[in-house]
Simulated scan of single mutants.
Amino acid sequence: MLARAARVLADAGVPSARAEAELLAAYVLAVPRGRLALADGFTDEQLDRFEALVTRRSRREPLQHLTGSAGFRHLELAVGPGVFVPRPETELLAGWGVERAAERVADGTTPVVVDLCSGSGAIALSVAQEVPAARVVAVERSPAALTWLRRNAATRAAAGDRPIEVLAADVTAPDLLAELVGRVDVLLCNPPYVPLAVAVPPEVAGHDPAEAVFGGGDGLTVIRPVLRRAADLLRPGGAVGVEHDDTHGASVPDLLAADGRYTAITAHHDLADRSRFATAFRRTDHRRPPTADTWQTGSS
């Protein structure tokens, strides 16, 4: 049955068809994927359910919508229609933010961490779980995404993680988080960044919210104001990390350098060696230098 399901998914163009067939079977049987070989066979009802899910997946409905959850670092997050499904590559940006927040805790500080375009809350909730001393603020505009964000935040708080603060707001607003100007230790953002002309997989085109995917003609429509506002919000020495399209490996670091308020600008690649996110630190001298900093490529 797994082999047949894998063939159906492969014929439909689903990547990693065998693995996804196993994940769907494990979901139906309520067992970890690694224990499928030890599980009893499907009941008739389970088989019908499994075949129905395989059919839906073959129509390129996201696997995470079928199972209702997405794994992200050490979390399982509820996801579904109306919210962007978090990607494994974003775990690198979240991990970088966790490290920066943990450094502040080691220095005896309660860090303020802001997650812009929070979506399901993947980055914000990872920081709250892994750096429980941090104050974490998650900002999201979409009413549909906010429903999933608040649901995940409530679930993690009930599990014992430090509660996060959820704010409904547009991250491009010039007065965003006015009460935190000059006080933020770490600002992270996984914004909509795909250029409008870029073709995306059916799972994205048909199911991820367009406002969470596309960032205008060049993909930088949201990133530009986010970088400007981040410089206002960060304390001197504060850290910013922004995910971007793999075609933005030079343009986003260049935007950081051109602003003049950032230093130690670094371009990061993902595990497939694609440009994935850029990081920088707020200058401590509060000045805009006459010439922009150069930037470097770092490992993630």
Rank of each mutant, 00 (worst) to 15 (best):
D270H: 09
P86S: 00
V127W: 07
V181Q: 12
T284P: 02
H286K: 11
F84Y: 04
G80T: 01
V252L: 04
E99C: 03
E140V: 13
E89I: 04
G219L: 06
A272Q: 10
A158L: 14
R73I: 08
I265W: 10
D245C: 04
T110I: 10
D218K: 08
D170C: 13
P81L: 07
P201D: 06
L36C: 14
G260V: 05
A102P: 04
I265D: 03
L93V: 05
A144Q: 15
A6I: 11
A210H: 13
V114T: 05
A205P: 06
G95K: 07
S58V: 13
R287Q: 13
L93M: 06
V166R: 10
R283G: 02
A210M: 09
A239G: 01
P62A: 09
G260F: 09
R104V: 01
G238F: 08
L255M: 08
A134G: 07
A267H: 07
R35K: 12
G241A: 14
R60C: 10
V200N: 03
V127M: 11
H207E: 05
E140S: 12
E211H: 11
D285R: 08
G238L: 10
E51A: 13
D40V: 12
D11A: 15
C189F: 03
A30L: 15
Q296C: 15
T147E: 15
P191R: 00
G219F: 02
A230I: 03
S275I: 06
A267L: 11
A6V: 14
L47D: 15
E140P: 09
L36M: 13
D161M: 11
V200E: 08
D254I: 04
